[in-house]
Design a protein around this nucleic acid. Structure first.
Length: 461
RNA sequence: UCCUUCUUAGCUCAGCUGGUUAGAGCACAUGACUGUUAAUCAUGGGGUCCCUGGUUCGAGUCCAGGAGAGGGAGCCA
């Protein structure tokens, strides 16, 4: 490696060394006698200040070094005379890899709106904000793998293409190689998927959970971490058509173990960001959300409030007059109710034991005949960041519930086999990765925490 | 998908009860300036007023339809 990362060159320990830096120009300023270039290489949010003597380097060369250009600079690292940085480079050699025409390069020295940057998603990683977000995103992905690995979980890769449409988590994207203009049809006039690539109708996965349960009942504790797809026409700052989900699934865990894991994991991840992404989190705190650091700190420190759905309804009913949607036992919670609970208890809330008719078929049924062992973790502003449950391991109860909900058994024969052969109590949950990154970065739109967002009517880049 | 707001220069926006040549700041170009920190100062170039149709002597402005974006809601993670 010929060059040194800006991150290292900014360290006072680099003073006195000769070094080579490579990166992209953020700004250039100066006069006849001295020019300053702020150089960023993505290794940190901070820039290396290049101090250039125009008479030595040539004005023609300097002119071509404009915002966005990619350059190589060599020189000595010295203590900075200016106040904005500890070190700077006294440049003795300068060359250009790629120019960026100042007239047409879309990024300016000044700030841009996040909406504009979404239209140039191919260039926005070069901004301070997206550099910070993407570095934090990476660190969160790494920390998730580390967290589970350190605790004896195995990373299970569940399929992206699925042959079952019974997962019930939302509309699916069809995967097909049939001629869309003129697909083969059977005697009934319906599209003949037996002629398709897999010989049956297939879709992109909406959840790896059912396969995750298979893994848990062999390996003990597993987690999935991969892309997930929902063809819902959701137009909100909290939904994507393509997003990444973490789904741990644990044999011999009950709902309390499940809650303990969820809370511990979230706190670990947020603490990891505070410890390892300090500069980036501080930048976002100063630029977008002055309460970000305090909020992250508070979530790490305080225990999450845990209560049953029924208890939550009792808390909400006296305040019904301030809700648009009045609540009563049996109705699903609206956003306004979740927000109320989170602010009422001053932090994350875990709700359990929801009415069975508003939850999925696989959740363990309670003895009261009315509720299931579901658990949702509600976060400030985000709302539901985690949804999970203890799973129903009783074959008869599970198939009875499936029949009630019109879920065909033959689609899920392999899933039901785990209840026939060596069934065990188990539990798990799903964490939306982008919602976690949203919370940790303080960004307000989920399209700004994934490099290339996929949303209804938008698959550019 | 529903409700709501918006769409004018590369970017962020102003543009009054419809009126003749559509403005500002920043960016960019040129020049000045002995160390700047979103440098500063001067000068200059830069427009399909989102699209289609309508009302009118006259539309950036009013009306209808469409497209895109923001915020809220639903679906959820």
């Amino acid at each position: 490696m010929e060059h040194t990362l800006v991150k290292e060159l900014l360290n006072a320990a680099s003073i006195g060394k000769h070094a080579i830096a490579k990166g992209w120009v953020r700004t250039k300023r100066g006069n006849k006698n001295v020019a300053f270039v702020a150089l960023n290489d993505g290794s940190t949010i901070h820039n290396l200040q290049l101090v250039i003597d125009p008479n030595q380097m040539g004005e023609e060369l300097l002119k071509r070094i404009s915002t966005g250009a990619c350059i190589r600079a060599a020189g000595n690292i010295v203590a900075s005379q200016g106040s904005g940085q500890a070190t700077e480079m006294q440049v003795t050699e300068l060359s250009i890899y790629g120019e960026a025409d100042a007239e047409t390069y879309p990024l300016q020295k000044k700030g841009h709106t996040l909406e504009f940057l979404r239209e140039i998603a191919h260039l926005r990683p070069r901004t301070n904000t997206f550099g910070a977000v993407l570095r934090i995103r990476h660190n969160m992905a790494y920390a998730i793998n580390k967290y589970f690995n350190d605790r004896g979980f195995f990373y299970l890769h569940t399929p992206i293409i699925t042959g079952s449409d019974a997962e019930g988590a939302g509309e699916m994207f069809r995967v097909s190689v049939l001629n869309a203009e003129n697909p083969p049809r059977n005697e009934e006039g319906k599209i003949d998927y037996t002629q398709d690539f897999f010989g049956k109708e297939t879709n992109l996965t909406v959840s790896g959970q059912l396969e995750g349960e298979l893994g848990a009942m062999a390996l003990g504790k597993i987690y999935t971490f991969g892309p997930t797809f929902r063809a819902e026409n959701s137009n909100t700052p909290r939904h994507l058509a393509e997003f990444w989900m973490i789904e741990p699934e644990m044999a011999f865990y009950d709902i309390h173990d499940n809650m303990d894991l969820a809370e511990d994991m979230l706190k670990y991840l947020i603490q990891y960001a505070l410890d390892n992404c300090k500069d980036d989190v501080e930048f976002l705190n100063n630029m977008y959300d002055k309460e970000l650091l305090a909020r992250l700190q508070s979530v790490v420190e305080k225990p999450f409030k845990r209560m049953s759905y029924t208890e939550a309804i009792d808390v909400l009913i006296p305040h019904n007059n301030q809700f648009e949607f009045k609540t009563e036992w049996g109705t699903d919670l609206q956003k306004e109710h979740e927000n109320f609970l989170v602010s009422h208890f001053g932090g994350p809330v875990i709700l359990t034991d929801y009415p069975k008719h508003i939850k999925a078929f696989y959740m363990k049924q309670n003895d009261d005949g009315k509720t299931v062992r579901a658990m949702d973790v509600l976060f400030p502003w985000i709302g539901e960041i985690i949804g999970g449950s203890q799973r129903e391991e009783d074959y008869t109860k599970l198939t009875t519930r499936m029949a009630e909900m019109n879920i065909p058994e033959h689609e899920l024969w392999w899933y039901l086999d785990t209840r026939k052969f060596g069934a065990c109590p188990h539990a798990g949950f799903g964490l939306g990765f982008e919602r976690l990154v949203l919370f940790v970065t303080g960004m307000s739109n989920i399209r700004d925490v994934i490099p290339f967002p996929r949303t209804p009517k938008n698959a550019e880049f």
